[in-house]
Amino acid sequence: MSHTPTADDLIDRHHLQPHPAGGYFSETWRSALTLPAAILPDEDVPRQAGTAIYYLLLSDQLCVRHRLFSDKLWFHLLGDPLTLSLESPRGDLRELTLGPTPDLIFQALAPAHHWQSARPLPGPTGYALMASVAVPGFDFGDFEHFSP
């Protein structure tokens, strides 16, 4: 039988730090390829082609509602299922549950400029470990929290 790591094991092993949206993260990749500012809408500085992170939410944590300039792919890696809420710029709302559920959905796209939030579902591990890839690469200057 294999050992399921605890949240603390993962936080230590992957050097996860608190994320402003909630939970913990560490950047695992930043593309060496730089996109010139001229090809990016609404941008006046060059940007990495893509970035990737590990992202962990404990069962009592939320990823608060936010949006990015970039497309973001979410990948469920380990732990309890996670519900991802997406709202289009027109206000259309969609929820997907990623992870070990009957639907077996393990990845989802949060398109650029869509509001997104996430919450883990209660389960035996007490966390959901995700990976995400942003294209073009993530920059905290693009990170917009929802203000009601």
Rank of each mutant, 00 (worst) to 15 (best):
G123V: 02
G91H: 13
Q107S: 05
L82A: 14
F69W: 08
H113A: 14
A118G: 13
H76L: 08
T125E: 04
I105E: 01
P111Y: 03
G123P: 04
G50M: 13
P100A: 15
D92P: 09
T101K: 02
Y54S: 02
L86E: 01
L58F: 13
Q116F: 10
H76E: 11
L93D: 07
G123A: 12
R119E: 04
F75R: 02
G91K: 14
R67I: 03
A49G: 06
L78E: 03
S117M: 06
L93G: 14
P102K: 13
L121V: 12
S70G: 00
D80V: 06
L68G: 01
L93A: 04
P111A: 02
I105D: 00
L73G: 02
K72E: 13
T51F: 03
D71F: 06
S88V: 07
C63F: 12
F69R: 09
P89S: 08
L96E: 12
A52C: 14
P124M: 08
Y127T: 12
L109G: 09
L82N: 01
L57I: 06
T125N: 04
A128N: 00
L98K: 03
P100S: 11
S88I: 09
A118D: 03
P89M: 12
A128P: 07
A110C: 11
L121Q: 05
S88Y: 15
S70F: 03
G79Y: 11
R65Q: 04
L57K: 02
E95F: 11
E95H: 09
A118Y: 08
D103Q: 14
R119G: 05
P81L: 13
L109M: 06
S59L: 10
Q116P: 08
R119Q: 13
P124Q: 07
R90A: 13
H114S: 09
L68Y: 05
Y55M: 07
D71P: 07
D80W: 05
Q116S: 06
D103C: 03
D60V: 15
D71I: 06
T101D: 00
Q48C: 05
L78V: 04
A110W: 02
S70N: 07
W74F: 15
I105R: 02
L121M: 09
D71W: 05
R119D: 04
P102I: 14
A52V: 03
P102C: 11
L98H: 13
A108S: 07
L82Y: 10
Y127I: 06
L78W: 07
T83L: 15
G91P: 00
S70K: 00
Q48E: 10
F69P: 03
L56Y: 08
A49Y: 02
